[in-house]
């Protein structure tokens, strides 16, 4: 059986296209606002504070925070893109069409998560380009950089998809990103090396999964990391597998979708 016969690729494409169209329709919100906020981070952290902090691991502070800043946007945007994309049809009721269409769960996930991940990857690259206007950038392992970018975008889009299905209100939709993801990202070494922390806090920080994402991503830029790259990659993949398992469970039981 070939792929075209086994899968409803037209449906995947139809959903993906609508998701991308939404991004272009709201280009101001989707693209320009993250670019502006990233620039602000550079002005405040990079220039104002960075002029007082000299170097971390031999990297200028401005350059040091670039991977963390990209991760910050990548995580929050992946989650909000994917959670909104599936929550909105649930909210207005138009989800009936998706559920009544000859579309498999796998196709639904590929389309929605693919759309959300694509948007946040594009965004990550735009932030990278914006950053290069402020600081001289150097990417030691570009292939790994892209691998971390894609892996993280997909993982957190899956996570967002789960939140979107779980959420019963717009408030719940905002809750997880606001109360969990943003603090974890800020405390996960976006703006500092966790080696700068006192020992106790360093140990506590190691329970923060975002540390591994940022550390691995930063390694792909500068070849320096807080924790070993293997562990970073391993943790990212573990989180991806957990998300896949939850999505599989949601679809097997019809949780908050078909009941």
């Amino acid at each position: 059986m070939n792929l075209r016969a086994a899968m409803n690729l037209r449906a995947v494409w139809a959903i993906y296209r609508v998701e991308m169209a939404r991004a272009f329709r709201t280009v101001l919100q989707s693209i320009i606002s993250p670019v502006i906020s990233t620039s602000l981070y550079f002005v405040v952290f990079g220039s104002a504070i960075g002029s007082r902090i000299t170097e971390i691991d031999g990297i200028s502070y401005g350059a040091f925070i670039v991977p963390g800043l990209i991760m910050l946007s990548l995580l929050t945007q992946s989650i909000s893109n994917a959670s909104f994309a599936i929550y909105f049809p649930k909210f207005v009721g138009s989800i009936y069409e998706l559920l009544s269409a000859p579309v498999s769960y796998l196709e639904i996930v590929i389309a929605y998560v693919g759309g959300a991940a694509t948007k946040s990857i594009i965004l990550g690259l735009i932030i990278l380009a914006t950053a290069s206007l402020f600081v001289p950038l150097h990417i030691e392992h570009p292939v790994w950089m892209l691998a971390f970018l894609v892996l993280t975008a997909v993982t957190f889009s899956l996570f967002g998809f789960i939140i979107g299905i779980w959420a019963k209100s717009f408030e719940q939709l905002q809750l997880v990103p606001l109360l969990i993801i943003t603090p974890l990202t800020f405390l996960g070494g976006s703006f500092y090396s966790i080696n700068m922390l006192p020992d106790v806090w360093r140990t506590v920080t190691l329970f923060n999964p975002v540390v591994y994402l940022i550390s691995g991503f930063r390694w792909s830029f500068y070849g320096k990391s807080d924790v070993s790259v293997g562990i970073s990659l391993g943790m990212t993949v573990v989180f991806l597998l957990i998300c896949i398992a939850i999505v599989a469970w949601i679809f097997r039981t019809g949780y908050r979708l078909r009941n």
Partner: peptide, 16 residues
């Protein structure tokens, strides 16, 4: 926020 044309074509695509 979608146009009538896009909405109907989307449905057709969804059904493969």
């Amino acid at each position: 926020f979608e146009s009538v044309w896009a909405t109907v074509n989307y449905s057709r695509g969804l059904f493969g």
